[in-house]
Design a protein around this nucleic acid. Structure first.
Length: 942
RNA sequence: GCCGAGUUGGCGGAAUGGUAGACGCGACGGUCUCAAAAACCGUUGUCCGAAAGGGCGUGCGGGUUCGAGUCCCGCACUCGGCACCA
């Protein structure tokens, strides 16, 4: 039994309490809904309307509808974009802002496996719950444009885009994707021949299909992929951590040769890097993408192995050091290794090179076996250089020297050509290997004095001349150019570029994802499901789980759950040549698929003829000026998607641009990463987390029920017992206070700790605003029409000026500080004049929209303030009646005087030199110089 | 190791090269109250001083400048990304 006596229950009180805030908030939310206040018209289609004003398209990284519900960290970005959207509407823009749900994914599938309930059921329930939690925030979204990636209508277009990618190839000459039909035409006309030179007419039908299929942007091939037995699925490189484990679940990942779907994202490497220059993104994210794509310029150099009648290419970024290449290394998995292995060790082979094994074949086989058994993690942990001699020698092309060829696991099969020329003088790893195996070390770049070990830096070339090639004395860049030229002339190599980026592994052995719109005919080659049969929907199955294995079972094989749905897999279709039997693809798409194009769907969410009508797409996403990339005007989300979603979405968008489906080259023109809200967590002496809201701070320590606890800082989560939910905040303070607090905590892009006890400051601010307009005892409006005094006019207009600049730059924390200062000024001087409070209410509207609407309506306005013009500064009131002038002597402040803003330099100097404390500080010394910045500053040098 | 961001009161944070610490939390003092809460008013970087005023202060060491949190050079530490990538 609680005895409650709170002011809001006293009928005579009209204080702005959480109860009153809640009442105001739900009332206005209902009115906004009823009036369709945030609906944004399209140029054409079912949402067509009057598209007056500039357009502004805002997006949030849409949420995954988790069953756990939201904590106060989740809405930070949504509030920020809402503030921007509401601000832009007051500037007259046509604002597109909506929120969809990224609803395919593992948690729903795991829940389904555990409960037997279809993942759709649980996912839809979670969406409903999340909608409810977010609605209470008063977000100004266009509800007509919301969707979930699991909606059959959305899946249809995801599959349609997959088919577009499948039905296209990358033309290196034109640097763009083109329809596969045009490639076929080039083969048919003889304009293009197969890589092996075979003519189209000489190829059998199946050979033709295989040739075409090998060029598609979405293709199946067998190659090393990341296999995660613990999850029962393969994963993209981007989903594997640096430790060689799955990002989700933290299971070990093994490299296995498997036949899987890939997307040819590597074709876009250059454009994905180069176009970063054309978008307005944080430098850190651009850098992460550049890093991930990992473009490096260098040379491919051919090394002949005469005894084996073979040759291999190496990639190097330092062709200038070729004279220092004293041995070569192939990755253990390199395809040429078996050809290079000699029958017996050559005369005089050092014992260290053989690992003590009698023949090269045995030594290589043993080394390869050990290397294959290592996980990625083990390879990283043991960085001691190991390897074994193959028995063969290659010829260094620039000087004809014979150099031994080794295999070693410090050379990776997936990068460059999987083979290197080793230059111990210039590379630390090669140095270590050379030391361990007694190989010669030749310096080819003059190192600064005192350098021991490898020197990878700049300097003049030395020891680098033979025959017609002499680069001694050349700086690194000039030497590289000279060597590449020589290699090209002698047919021994060429300048080239390699990338770290690998093609995107696109298939997953999961149930809860988009099925591939692909069937196989009797020849086992893939065929796209025609448009009119989309979407391919998931069949109902008795068991949603893939076959999972012991996490360490590297030899297991992926087996997708859809493969067990026999009736679905085997299907009779008429694909234009009469009804035939086909077998469906049983993998599903990764859950990045939906988010790789969803920006398009917001622009035309119900279109059944196209992903988006070209006119709607061009209006919302098209370039704003010739040569621009186009894209969403503001995209806000966490930095965790820097190389996953953001790279995939750019790739898909570029393919659609190449194929003429969109007018924008980039999906997101401006990207903003909001920081995270983190929280303190507390552990007692047993190292057990205790509920954070029960911890007290006193005597310089933290206490839980009189027991000392230690504080740590991290994410909000159930396991740390430090979750604060938006619902807690709505109840205690209301949504507007919560919004203002989150926006005032600090700069939006910086992570900061949540502190519930500080929220009251934002509530006090809103209460003061309320009190300026409403009598707390009677509820009457206390606003009058008095004229503003000069001081108040000055404060008001400097506030308008400053707040506009802050809003423009998304500096909501300082904007709020300025509004607080204005409010405090009005409170202090007792001004509740309409001329002051109306602009205050309007400026507050984007931040605390419900309170602002309520006050605006109490001020007598019948219309909502959503499209009311944002207050405009009157420059006449920016100048103050007097300014404080600071007087410095030798750089230190020695006096302050109040002066007129238009005081002259001479006048100000005289006043400054007469100020008593300044006179004292000068102390009769000679004045050498006086710097005057009227009217704010005088600096005196003695 | 490479790349990027950062380091300001007890705390979150403000500061176009020109009064460091706006605004908020907390703390302290006061008004109101029988009392408390709420609200309101005031103080609050630190040291010396009764005060006036002064010394010292933006991670550390230098430099440029009449003047540096801000610009330049070097270093330390924290966070994030990549990493045996040739």
């Amino acid at each position: 039994m609680r005895v409650v006596s709170t002011p809001e229950e006293t009928p005579t009180s009209y204080r702005y309490t959480s109860a009153l805030a809640g009442e105001i908030e739900s009332r206005w939310q209902e009115r906004w809904d009823a009036e369709g206040s945030f609906e944004a018209p399209n140029p054409v289609g079912d949402l067509a309307g009057d598209v007056a004003g500039d357009k502004y398209f805002i997006m949030d990284m849409f949420p995954y509808p988790s069953g756990a519900g939201l904590h106060v960290g989740h809405p930070l970005g949504y509030i920020a974009t809402d503030v921007v959207g509401r601000y832009r509407r007051m500037l007259g823009d046509n604002v597109l802002h909506a929120l969809g749900y990224d609803a395919f994914g593992l948690p729903a599938e795991i829940h389904a496996v555990q409960t037997g309930e279809h993942p759709r059921t649980n996912t839809l329930a979670n969406i409903t719950n999340m909608r409810r939690q977010l609605r209470r925030l008063g977000l100004a979204h266009d509800p007509r444009r919301s969707f979930a990636t699991i909606d059959p209508d959305f899946v249809r277009w995801t599959q349609w885009i997959f088919v577009q990618i499948f039905e296209s190839w990358y033309d290196e000459d034109q640097q763009k994707a083109r329809p596969i039909s045009e490639l076929r035409a080039e083969f048919e006309s003889g304009a293009r021949t197969a890589p092996d030179g075979a003519a189209w007419d000489d190829l059998a039908p199946l050979e033709r299909r295989i040739l075409i299929d090998s060029r598609r942007l979405a293709y199946v091939d067998e190659s090393p992929v990341n296999w995660c037995p613990g999850l029962g699925t393969v994963l993209a490189n981007e989903e594997v951590t640096a430790e060689g484990r799955s990002e989700r679940g933290n299971f070990p990942v093994f490299t296995r040769n498997l036949r899987q779907w890939k997307m040819r994202i590597t074709a876009y490497s250059d454009r994905l890097i180069d176009d970063l220059e054309r978008v307005d993104w944080p430098e850190s994210v651009k850098n992460m993408q550049r890093n991930w794509i990992g473009r490096s310029h260098g040379a491919r150099v051919r090394f002949d192995v005469p005894t084996a009648g073979a040759s291999f290419d190496v990639f190097t970024t330092r062709p200038d050091t070729l004279f220092g290449a004293t041995y070569a290394v192939l990755a253990p998995e390199h395809e040429l290794v078996s050809a290079l292995v000699t029958d017996e060790w050559p005369e005089g082979t050092p014992r260290a090179w053989t690992n003590g094994v009698p023949t090269p074949a045995e030594a290589v086989a043993a080394y390869r076996a050990v290397a294959a058994a290592k996980t990625d993690l083990e390879r990283q942990e043991h960085k001691d250089k190991t390897g074994v001699f193959t028995g063969s020698y290659a010829i260094n092309p620039v000087n004809g020297e014979e150099i031994p060829v080794f295999i070693a696991d410090y050379v990776l099969t997936g990068y460059g050509t999987g083979a290197i020329m080793a230059v111990p003088g210039g590379d630390q790893r090669d140095w270590e290997f050379a030391e361990a195996y007694g190989l010669p070390i030749i310096r080819t770049v003059e190192a600064p004095e005192g350098v021991e070990g490898a020197y990878p830096g700049e300097g003049p070339a030395v020891n680098s001349a033979h025959g017609d090639l002499d680069i001694n004395g050349l700086a690194v860049d000039a030497a590289k150019t000279a060597v590449i030229e020589w290699l090209q002339q002698h047919g021994a190599g060429e300048g080239t570029t390699t990338y770290r980026l690998r093609d995107w592994l696109f298939s997953r052995q999961r149930y809860w994802g988009e099925p591939f719109p692909i069937v196989y005919d009797e020849s086992d080659q893939p065929i796209a499901v025609p448009d009119h049969l989309l979407p391919v929907e998931l069949p109902d199955v008795p068991d949603y789980s893939p076959k999972t294995y012991e996490p360490d079972d590297a030899d297991s094989t992926p087996e997708p759950p859809l493969a067990r749905a026999d009736d679905w897999v085997h299907v009779t279709l008429d694909l234009g040549n009469g009804p035939r039997r086909y077998r469906r693809e049983t993998n599903t798409m990764p859950n990045w698929a939906g988010s790789s194009w969803y920006e398009l769907r917001y622009t035309d969410p119900h279109n059944t003829e196209a992903v988006s009508d070209p006119e709607n797409e061009r209006y919302w996403l098209g370039p704003r000026s010739p040569g621009g990339t186009g894209g969403v005007d503001l995209y806000v989300g966490g930095v965790e998607h820097a190389v996953l979603h953001l790279l995939y979405a750019r790739f898909w968008h570029k393919v659609l641009f190449d194929l003429g489906h969109v007018s924008s080259e980039e999906p997101f023109h401006r990207l903003f990463n909001q920081g995270y809200i983190q929280a303190y967590a507390y552990r007692d002496e047993r190292e057990v987390y205790v509920p954070a809201d029960e911890v007290e701070e006193r005597d310089g320590g933290y206490w839980h029920h009189d027991k000392p606890v230690t504080r740590e800082y991290g994410k909000m989560g159930k396991s740390l017992k430090n979750v604060v939910t938006p619902d807690d905040m709505y109840e205690a303070y209301g949504a507007d206070t919560f919004r203002v607090y989150e926006m005032s905590m600090g700069p939006l892009d910086v992570s900061r700790p949540w502190e519930t006890r500080a929220v009251v400051g934002s509530q006090r601010f809103l209460q003061r605003v309320w009190r300026l307009l409403v009598d707390e005892d009677t509820g009457d409006l206390r606003v009058d029409d008095a004229e503003l005094d000069a001081g108040t006019l000055h404060v008001l207009h400097t506030t308008i000026d400053g707040v506009r600049v802050d809003m423009q730059h998304m500096r909501f924390n300082t904007a709020i500080a300025k509004l607080i200062e204005l409010t405090n000024h009005l409170t202090k001087v007792g001004v509740s004049s309409r001329a002051a409070v109306e602009p205050l209410v309007l400026m507050l509207a984007p931040l605390a929209p419900h309170l602002a609407e309520e006050l605006w309506s109490r001020l007598g306005h019948e219309q909502s303030l959503i499209r009311e013009p944002y207050p405009v500064v009157d420059p006449a009131h920016l100048a103050a009646a007097s300014v404080t002038c600071v007087i410095q002597v030798l750089g230190k402040v020695r006096g302050k005087i109040e002066v007129s803003p238009d005081v002259s330099d001479d006048e100000l100097t005289a006043l400054a030199l007469a100020e008593p404390n300044v006179v004292k500080s000068i102390d009769g010394r000679e004045i050498r110089k006086v710097i005057v910045r009227a009217p704010k500053l005088v600096s005196i040098v003695v």
